[in-house]
C-alpha cells in the first residue's frame, strides 16, 4: 500500500555563511498524523520549520506539499494552500482584542481586499464564528481583552484559535509548550489532540513527555541531520538518540 504523505522534503539543505544548519533532510509527514520534530538545542528544528513555511529559502533540496512543489513559493502563498505555522514566540497581535485577533484570520476569506472606504461593520458577520472559535479554546471571557494583557498560556490558545480560523489542512507548531506551566501544558496538549482531528500537525517540541503521549511519529534531528525516526518507543530505545540527548542539556 502506498502511504499518503502530505508534506515531503528531498535533500533539504540550508547553509548560512560557512555553517550548515540543515543538511540533506528527507522528511515525510503522513496525512492526518501528529508528527514531532525533536532534537537538542541548535539541531536545526526551527530552521527546518522556516524552510518548510518558506520564511527562509533553502540552499538546496525540494519541498512538496500535497504533491505540489512549493520550494520557490512566497510564504503567504504557502499559507493559502492550507499550511499554517505558529511561531516560537507567541504570535498574536498584541494590541488587538481576542475577538479582533481571530477576526483578522477569518477576514482572509474575503480575499485580497483593499476596501478602505468601507466600514469595518461589514466584519460583524464574522463575530459569531470568531466567538465560537474563542469558546473552543476556552477564551470566551477574553474576547474583549487585548492579547498583550492575557497570561502566556492564553496567548498560545489565542494563537491556536487564530490558526484554526483558517481551517488549515496542516498546522506547523513551533514549540507550542515553550515557557508554559504544568496546568497550561495539559490544556494545550488536550487542545492540540482535539484540533488534530482531520488535520495533520507537525510540531517542534522540547518537552519529551508531551511528545511521548501526543505524537504518532517522531523525527530526531541533530546537527541538522535526521538521526532517527519512528514512534516514541522506537526512537527512545535508539542508543544514538539517548547519546545525543544525554550529551546535550536535556536530561
Amino acid at each position: 500500500m502506498v502511504e499518503d504523505f502530505i508534506l515531503e522534503t528531498k535533500g533539504l539543505t540550508k547553509e548560512f555563511a560557512g555553517f550548515t544548519a540543515v543538511r540533506d533532510v528527507d522528511l515525510r509527514v503522513r496525512r492526518g498524523s501528529i508528527h514531532a520534530l525533536i532534537g537538542p538545542n541548535g539541531a536545526g528544528k526551527t530552521t527546518c520549520f522556516n524552510l518548510l513555511t518558506k520564511f527562509l529559502p533553502p540552499t538546496r533540496g525540494a519541498i512538496a506539499y500535497n504533491g505540489r512543489d512549493i520550494t520557490s513559493m512566497a510564504p503567504a502563498d504557502v499559507a493559502r494552500l492550507g499550511l499554517i505555522r505558529s511561531f516560537q514566540i507567541s504570535a498574536v497581535f498584541p494590541h488587538l482584542t481576542g475577538m479582533e485577533n481571530v477576526r483578522v484570520a477569518l477576514q482572509r476569506h474575503r480575499g485580497d481586499n483593499f476596501d478602505f472606504w468601507r466600514s469595518k461593520k461589514v466584519l460583524d458577520d464574522l463575530n459569531g464564528r470568531a466567538m465560537a472559535l474563542l469558546e473552543d479554546v476556552g477564551l470566551t471571557e477574553f474576547a474583549d481583552v487585548t492579547a498583550v494583557e492575557m497570561p502566556y498560556g492564553r496567548k498560545r490558545a489565542l494563537e491556536i484559535a487564530t490558526t484554526l480560523a483558517l481551517d488549515p489542512e496542516m498546522m506547523l507548531l513551533d514549540e507550542p509548550m515553550a515557557g508554559m506551566g504544568h496546568e497550561d501544558i495539559e490544556k494545550v496538549v488536550e487542545l492540540i489532540r482535539r484540533v488534530s482531528a482531520n488535520r495533520t500537525v507537525l510540531m517542534v517540541e522540547h518537552n519529551l513527555n508531551v511528545v511521548a503521549n501526543l505524537s504518532d511519529t517522531i523525527t530526531v534531528l541533530t546537527r541538522g541531520q535526521i538521526l532517527a525516526e519512528g514512534d516514541y518507543a522506537t526512537v527512545s530505545a535508539n542508543p544514538e538518540v539517548q547519546q545525543a540527548y544525554l550529551g546535550a542539556s536535556h536530561g
Binding site: T53, A79, R80, H95, V104, Q107, R110, D115, L123
Partner: peptide, 22 residues
Amino acid sequence: NSPFGEILKAIRENEPRAISLG
C-alpha cells in the same frame, strides 16, 4: 476603521504572523 485598516493594524502588530495567515 475599515476591513483594510484591520489588516494594516495586524501588519503593524506582527507582520510575520500576518504573512503566516496568508
